[in-house]
Structure formats: structure tokens, C-alpha cells
């Protein structure tokens, strides 16, 4: 706007002549401020991330071990050491056929969850695609979500007794309504333009429901499943407490009856490990089912 201040000062041309040699030489490396450990939305490398994760796990075990050591000796059986619990788990596997209990629990989780998906995926999909189906079903399913699964236990006992079916039914009821609601959200989040562009290509309604809406929401649906099966694991002990003879929960309840805290904690640890493995299996499935998500640039 105003040239006056510039005309008096040294122009860039003068600088070029004066420091010619200097300008040609490579500039020293720029040192940006050091990244703070808790930089906002800072980056974390792959190995750093793994390291920090290990630190968290080890810290938990160290805290547990310290708590054990600090407990008075005559009370220590109520808070056994990490080593005692781990060796108890080993003992259960080698001497008590624990593997059959673990297998039974895994079977219950996966079978009940399979049927929950069989129910929730189409329901969530149709609710997300058809306003009238949504209006028909949503008030019912929405309300059922608020019933604690544990409150079904007496009812299921009366209906089915201490059978395997009662346990599967409880695990099913524990997650099916939430899963439906989550999948409805996933389907509703499909961009309107994807649906409309399919319409302008001449796609039929069913083509859009299954080949566009479902296909588009599929990675998010798998994510919802991953989150809900974690909830299913949390119901496992409730399901197996009641008149169960097998499964991890039953083993833990037997431990409780004889104040074997090491067995109870062993059960908790087993469920934790199995939960992590389940989560991992869903992530790996997503990796192979949706290769295009990895192909982001």
C-alpha cells in the first residue's frame, strides 16, 4: 500500500550481492522445539506405542505384587501374588481340565453372539433403511435396552432351568438390543449421497439395502460387534454363576465357596486374556475383510 518505508531500507537485490556466498551455502538444519511428552495430539511411534502399552500392563502387575507384599501374612491368601495366580492357572489346566471350562465359555460367548448378530444385523439394517420399520420397532427395542440382562436370570431359570440354553439366552439378551441400536447408527451414518448416486444409477431398493447401505456400513458394523462382544464377556460370569457346572464362571464360583481367591483371580485373568484375544480376532478379520480401508493414502 505504502512504498515509503521500503525505499529507504536495504533492498533484497543488495542483500543478494553482499552475502552471495552465504546464500549459496546450505543452511544449517533447523531445530524445531523438542516435542513434549504430552504434546497435544502428539504422535506416537509404533514401537513407542507397544512399549508404553507394556509399561501399563507391567505397572498393573507391579502394583498388585506390592499390594500382596504389604498385606499381613495371615491375610495373604485373600490377595495372592501374581506368581501364585499364574501357577494356579497352570495347575487348573494340567490337573483340573480347565481347558474344557475355557472351551465351554468361549463356545457360549461365540454361539450366543452369533445368534445376536443374526438378529441384530438385519434388524438394524432394515431400521436404518426403512423409516416405517424403524417407527414400528424402535420404541420396543429402545426400551428393552434399559433392562439389565441380570434381571432376566430368574425368568430364564424358571423357563429353562439350569440348562445350557438358559446361559446362551442370557448372553444373547445381554447384547442383542444394544447391538441393534449400534448397527442402526452405523447404517444411518451411510452418506446420503451414496444412496442417491446408486438411485441415479438405476439400482433397485434391495440392491441399495444390501449392496450399498450394508456394504458401506460393514466396517463400522464389525466395529460395533467388536465392542459388543466385549460386553458379552462381562456377562459371562453372571450367566455361569447360576447353577452352572462348567465354564470359567462356574470354576470361579467353586473357588469362592472354598475361599480360593487365587482361583477367582485366575478366572478373572483368563477372561481378560480371552477378551483381548477376541478383540484381536475381530481386528484381524476387519483387516482381511476390508482391505480398502488400509489403502488410504
Amino acid at each position: 500500500m505504502n512504498d515509503a518505508p521500503l525505499s529507504g531500507s536495504v533492498s533484497r537485490a543488495d542483500l543478494l550481492v553482499a552475502d552471495d556466498e552465504n546464500l549459496k551455502a546450505e543452511a544449517p538444519l533447523f531445530k524445531p522445539p523438542r516435542e513434549q511428552f504430552l504434546g497435544l495430539r502428539g504422535s506416537v511411534g509404533r514401537y513407542q506405542s507397544m512399549f508404553l502399552g507394556m509399561v501399563g500392563i507391567i505397572a498393573l502387575f507391579v502394583a498388585w505384587e506390592i499390594a500382596h507384599v504389604m498385606t499381613p501374612e495371615n491375610q495373604q491368601k485373600f490377595l495372592p501374588s501374581v506368581g501364585q495366580v499364574v501357577s494356579k492357572i497352570a495347575y487348573l489346566f494340567t490337573e483340573k481340565g480347565y481347558i474344557a471350562d475355557v472351551a465351554k465359555s468361549v463356545y457360549r460367548i461365540y454361539v450366543s453372539f452369533f445368534f445376536a448378530c443374526l438378529f441384530a444385523v438385519p434388524l438394524g439394517l432394515f431400521k436404518g433403511c426403512f423409516a416405517k420399520i424403524r417407527a414400528l420397532i424402535n420404541p420396543t427395542v429402545g426400551g428393552l435396552r434399559y433392562l439389565p440382562a441380570a434381571s432376566f436370570v430368574p425368568l430364564l431359570l424358571v423357563y429353562f432351568g439350569p440348562t445350557d440354553f438358559a446361559k446362551l439366552a442370557l448372553l444373547f439378551l445381554g447384547c442383542v438390543f444394544f447391538l441393534t441400536a449400534l448397527i442402526l447408527d452405523n447404517v444411518e451414518a451411510v452418506p446420503k449421497e451414496l444412496i442417491e448416486s446408486a438411485q441415479t444409477m438405476g439400482a433397485s431398493r434391495w440392491h441399495i439395502v444390501f449392496r450399498v447401505a450394508f456394504r458401506s456400513a460393514a466396517p463400522q458394523i464389525l466395529d460395533s460387534m467388536r465392542n459388543m462382544i466385549a460386553v458379552s464377556w462381562t456377562y459371562l460370569v453372571i450367566a455361569e454363576i447360576v447353577a452352572a457346572t462348567d465354564g470359567i464362571g462356574a470354576v470361579m464360583m467353586r473357588g469362592a465357596r472354598f475361599l480360593h481367591v487365587d482361583i477367582i483371580m485366575g478366572g478373572i485373568l483368563t477372561i481378560g486374556v480371552l477378551g483381548v484375544l477376541t478383540d484381536l480376532s475381530f481386528r484381524i478379520a476387519g483387516h482381511f475383510l476390508f482391505p480398502y480401508i488400509r489403502a488410504r493414502r
Binding site: 452418506p191 449421497e193 442417491e196 441415479t200 444409477m201 450399498v212 456394504r215 458401506s216
Partner: peptide, 15 residues
């Protein structure tokens, strides 16, 4: 299909 449309939002199917 006789009236093809291109939208402002990206509508390629990512899968």
C-alpha cells in the same frame, strides 16, 4: 440411469 448425476460429495464406493 438415463439421468446420470454427479454430486459435490465424493460418491465412489470405497469398497
Amino acid at each position: 440411469p438415463e439421468r446420470g448425476m454427479v454430486f459435490q460429495a465424493y460418491t465412489s464406493f470405497p469398497w
